[in-house]
Write a protein that binds this DNA or RNA. Structure first.
Length: 481
RNA sequence: GGCCCCGUGGUCAAGUGGUUAAGACACCGCCCUUUCACGGCGGCAACACGGGUUCGAAUCCCGUCGGGGUCACCA
């Protein structure tokens, strides 16, 4: 019989939520949901120097935006200092940990010494056997000690990892590491263990970079005499240059992707695929399927290099199938940012345009960009198109006829416009391309986009005709001959 | 450098001793179309290398090489 699954995501608020972190959160969440367990959010903010309020807000926002909700928390480590002290004191009393008064300078000296001898630095255990008097004296001097764990010098510590199998570490490579800093704060390893224990965490699912910390944590569990959780170390998400994600890799945070017009469902879909795949090999699937099928055993061991192109492709799928109102609402801020609309706007009009533009775009930014000419006059014509269509013999005459035809069209909509255009092509004895392409360039400034008659209908007769006439003028003035 | 993890096409990724080694993105070609995108069809392209074990290895073992992670009073 297995007790309730309890997992946690424990970011430290020192930066943004990048896609690697988001994936770790997601895998924890999927695991919890799959097993009907609890997903708990904890904030590892014991690093006073680097933790910021802003970073924390960003991370919580990012999770919410992705739809990763938590059942308990957020729990802040900085508010649980008494607990860590309590456990540290217990260890002290039991002789499993000890005060260390070595200064940073002394430590630095040991480090240098180690370097000179060409061996890795390990704390020598200098303060391991201080007498009561010595400790009293140091304390009286006002020296602020750290607390170190007495670790075994021999034997092995093995991590039973669900994803990686058994991983062994020689205890001789683990020194008496610090569990409480001199400022009274716990170190990461210690706080993590105390919290995970008290929160009843059953499975620790986290990034592989923590694997080498795990033996230390196991030693703490053992010293505390509390049961071990299960471990699962997920491989890292790497940047395209195969190194750890950082700012220099361009967009890596969830917020940046949001600002670039990616949908949360698409991001979730994509990062699920980074290290995991459903049984049927499908690429596009919703989170309900992931929950249904998710298992740690199927998480792959090798690091995943993320690929924006595939994310973009997936995003395109979601954009095409998204609820139209939801999509329209999502696009409005992007239109506003581009200055195409203000506080007041014609929602229905925007929605109509979105419904056709979304077919061919892959991000919200692309959609907003593709909507430009519905809100602004055409300011320039795509150079490639000008060369191809505006320099053609007879193009001015064709456009003149087109303008005339359209001007007299009543009623004016995409059906009547198309009918009129088809007829005109026949009358003129030209190919439809000879009429359609220059028209498109004239009314949109571009060589690509939605169906020509959709554009016309959205623009309305006035604008359509005016733009064609303007293009005629442009050709006469700039091309000539 | 020590320790640890990983190694299937450019990328993600099926595959767990016997397969013509899936699929997807990207790329190339063709079709559809007023354009672009979508879609359809086709193509390019991989088991890092070397030894074993085995009738038989992408799959198991060892070594080499390569990549990554970690070695703090950061998390």
């Amino acid at each position: 019989m297995m007790s309730e699954v309890r997992v946690r995501f424990a970011p430290s608020p020192t930066g943004s939520l990048h896609i690697g972190g988001a994936r770790t959160a997601l895998f924890n969440w999927l695991f919890a949901r799959h097993h009907g367990g609890k997903f708990i959010l904890r904030v590892d903010d014991t690093d006073l120097e680097r933790s910021t309020e802003e970073s924390m807000r960003g991370i919580l926002e990012g999770l919410q935006w992705l739809g990763i909700d938590w059942d308990e928390g957020p729990i802040y480590q900085s508010q649980r200092l008494d607990e860590y002290r309590k456990f540290a004191n217990k260890l002290l009393e039991e002789g499993k940990a000890y005060y260390c008064f070595c200064t940073k300078e002394e430590l630095e000296e040991m480090r240098k010494q180690a370097e000179r001898e060409g061996r890795p630095f390990m704390y020598t255990g200098k303060c391991r056997n201080l007498t009561k008097e010595q400790i009293e004296n140091y304390l009286k001097e006002g020296r602020k000690p750290v607390i170190r764990l007495k670790t075994p010098r021999e034997g092995k510590t093995v991590v039973h990892d669900i994803i990686r199998g058994d991983v062994e570490f020689d205890n001789s490579t683990i020194d008496d590491f610090i569990i409480m800093k001199s400022d009274g704060m716990p170190t990461y390893n210690f706080a993590t263990v105390v919290d995970d224990y008290q929160m009843g965490i059953t499975h620790i699912i986290r990034a592989e970079e923590h694997l080498s910390n795990t033996p230390k944590q196991i030693l703490i569990y053992e010293a505390l005499g509390v049961p071990l959780p299960q471990f699962a170390h997920v491989s890292m998400v790497l940047a395209p240059d195969r190194t750890k994600l950082s700012k220099r890799h361009g967009a890596t945070s969830v917020q940046e992707f949001r600002d670039q017009g990616y949908l949360p469902e698409a991001i979730v879909n994509y990062i699920t695929l980074l290290g995991w795949a459903p049984l049927d090999g499908e690429e596009i699937f919703d989170v309900r399927k992931s929950i249904r099928e998710f298992s740690l055993e199927r998480v792959s061991k090798n690091p995943a290099v993320y690929d924006v192109q595939k994310l973009t492709w997936i995003n395109g799928h979601y954009i095409k199938s998204y609820d139209l109102d939801k999509l329209t609402q999502a696009i409005i801020p992007f239109l506003q940012k581009k200055g195409l609309i203000g506080e007041n706007y014609d929602y229905e009009y925007i929605k109509k345009i979105v419904s056709v533009v979304r077919e061919r775009e892959k991000t919200l930014v692309d959609i907003a960009d593709a909507m430009t000419y519905y809100f602004k006059e055409v300011e320039s014509y795509e150079e490639k198109g000008v060369q191809k269509y505006f320099t053609k013999e007879g193009v001015v005459d064709i456009l003149k006829k087109a303008a005339e035809t359209l001007k007299n069209l009543e009623p004016f909509n995409k059906f009547t416009a198309e009918e009129a255009y088809r007829k005109l092509v026949e009358e003129l004895g030209i190919s439809s391309s000879a009429l359609f392409h220059p028209t498109r360039l004239a009314i949109s400034g571009r060589t690509f986009g939605p169906g020509l008659f959709d554009i016309m209908e959205f623009l309305g007769k006035e604008k359509t005709v005016a733009r064609i006439e303007r293009a005629i003028k442009f050709i006469e003035e700039n091309i000539k001959g």
